[in-house]
Nucleic acid binder design. Structure first.
Lengths: 203, 203, 203, 203
DNA sequence: TATGAATGAGAATTCATTCAT
DNA sequence: GATGAATGAATTCTCATTCAT
């Protein structure tokens, strides 16, 4: 097996474990077992646990920011840009559920330990949103708004939605909870986008 | 110092540490030092770490659900109920920032380890929201909607907002970020409430 | 058992192991077993291996320098001072053979890792010797000399002698080696003292 | 690079590392990096760490004993022999400072782990000294003496001197220490030889 | 011969918990 | 109730050695 393969395999496996158990709750022995590699191999490829964490986060966060930015830049109208921003974020987040868990944990820690590269990716997404809103505002399409709250609305809502997917699937289907099982990420993203855009549009 | 005092002091301190570092990241030695009590005293008062965690979460989650329910039940109109629901949740969350951090972490873990009492408090809040939405729907005020997404919208948005308060205060005040510093929890809750209600109202 | 007892027991045992196996060759597991204490107890009392090493060296080196200085200061004549210096050093070194081994190892490493407190004790001994030689010189008793070489002569010779005591006792008593077994530290110190003083005395 | 070159390069590098860090403190990874060879190459050339250590010590100790013996055998008078013995030992020790460090460490360990070939070289030197002293004694030139102490005096003093050369060069040149910087191995050997011979000569 | 990758056996350190007073 | 000391079970990380090419 080539270096790239093993290193990548470790990274993927580590991402899942960091997402599920957090940094402190992830045990290197368990990781090695899950990966099917020797414990020392992890250290051969990734120096130490902290570095592995950094590497994993960078590998997760970067393509997400890239995808959102690329999709938005293919649009010109602020309304469409905002909708694409939200829907693309929802889609890539759903594709890699590790992202949502890790981001939520890092935010819970106050972002104090978030590796700089990962933090920068989040800033790229936030700044992109700010540009969309400002551009919509200067075109007279959007009302003045607080970008950070909208950022949190998008991320908070959709991350919780993605995170809760496995949880909801194991819930007993009581009458009261039945309706909750139906929604999927697409419709959730639609609803979030529609809600936010509706509140922004100049009547 | 009375038993109650010491026990309470430990609980408060533990809440803060669990919020900041998570369950696995909270070290009993550090907790003892932060509390200013002997490590063995923690065990005298709280059996073990898992029990202490349960106790802390119950102490945090219960009054929050209580406050939201009480405030909502003082209202009769669904629109007002929903607004009060959101604003009360925002206020009590801001009053005890531990709640947001711990909830985010627990959701990131898929809720797998969340103590039952704490989980029940979250369900009380969710079920309250469902009743509000259904009542509004049956009165012809609200459109049909997905309660879970709205739940996530409220919790995700406001929790991230509360969690990010200390973070934002340490950010350098660049032009680009300046506007982000101004918002407070009141106006954030207003914006969330207005946005959600606007999207629900039958035009 | 009181804290002092356990801490001291660990220190004594560690000194012996550091002397015999060196810093890198001393295994904390073995040390715990030799001491008859739990491994974690070592860390409870001494933070980590490096600190334990520092503590052990300080505990070994300080009384040795103290004893030499005290004995020398009870004398007034340089010749007697020098003889007492050498004989006292020999006696205390023989009393605690760890000292010689550790000092030899540290010198072999270039003193790079020797804890500052231990190094200072060696400097106290060297400076004392320099004062003796200078005082003898200014009184016209001693010829001019190189203090460092005399320092090395004392320490190197007597340390090797002390270190080799157990080695010699296990040697097969061949004809050729037989005579080597007889000498003791007292006579060795005498011979060193006599040799050095003879070479220093103004004829 | 030829087999011989690589093997030799590893041996030289290993000698330096064993001298500086000891057997246990020498890490094969570091050695490979210092040598500029792949770690597996070390094993291709030298079986394992213990064998490499044996090889290194044999390569260091043998020429030293050879040189001392050859130089002494060129002399006939015991006094001259003894002086040549000391001065040659000093010179070859200074030429390869690894020797002194390794010997000091091995003596500190009680010689327990010293490879047999290296130990034999030290015995050749000691037996040579014994022959010189006995010959001087039977010729009525030397008084009766303890060869082992004289052996230790030579080795201990000069080894410490050689070992401390780099240390002394980094010392701050205070008034008190200034004089220590001046001496070189030649004069140190002279002083040792003169001192020892003076104490041996029948008056 | 040379080398990147892999690994089993350790070794240092941590941590939740308990004990004795 | 409180506390210094003790400890067994992890947990992170290291290191000599081997493998495959």
């Amino acid at each position: 097996m080539t270096r790239i393969d093993t290193s990548r395999k470790i990274l993927d496996c580590a991402s899942r474990m960091f997402a599920q158990h957090g940094y402190d709750g992830t045990i290197m022995d368990d990781l090695a077992e899950q990966c099917g590699v020797n414990k020392a191999s992890i250290y051969y490829h990734h120096k130490d646990k902290a570095t592995l964490y950094d590497n994993a986060l960078t590998a997760i966060f970067t393509p997400i920011a890239d995808a959102v930015i690329e999709a938005v830049e293919a649009q010109v109208e602020p309304v469409k840009q905002l909708r694409v921003h939200i829907k693309t974020f929802a889609r890539v987040t759903a594709d890699n559920p590790c992202f949502a868990s890790i981001l939520m944990r890092e935010m819970a820690s106050g972002g104090a330990n978030m590796p700089v590269p990962a933090r920068q990716q989040m800033q790229r997404i936030l700044f992109l949103l700010m540009r969309i809103l400002q551009s919509g505002e200067s075109q007279g399409v959007f009302r003045s708004s607080d970008a950070l709250i909208i950022h949190f609305m998008i991320i908070g809502t959709l991350n919780l939605f993605v995170i809760s997917i496995p949880l909801r699937q194991t819930l007993p289907a009581t009458d009261q909870l039945e309706q909750l099982q139906n929604s999927n990420i697409e419709s959730a993203a639609d609803q979030v986008a529609t809600t936010i855009i509706a509140s922004l549009l100049v009547k």
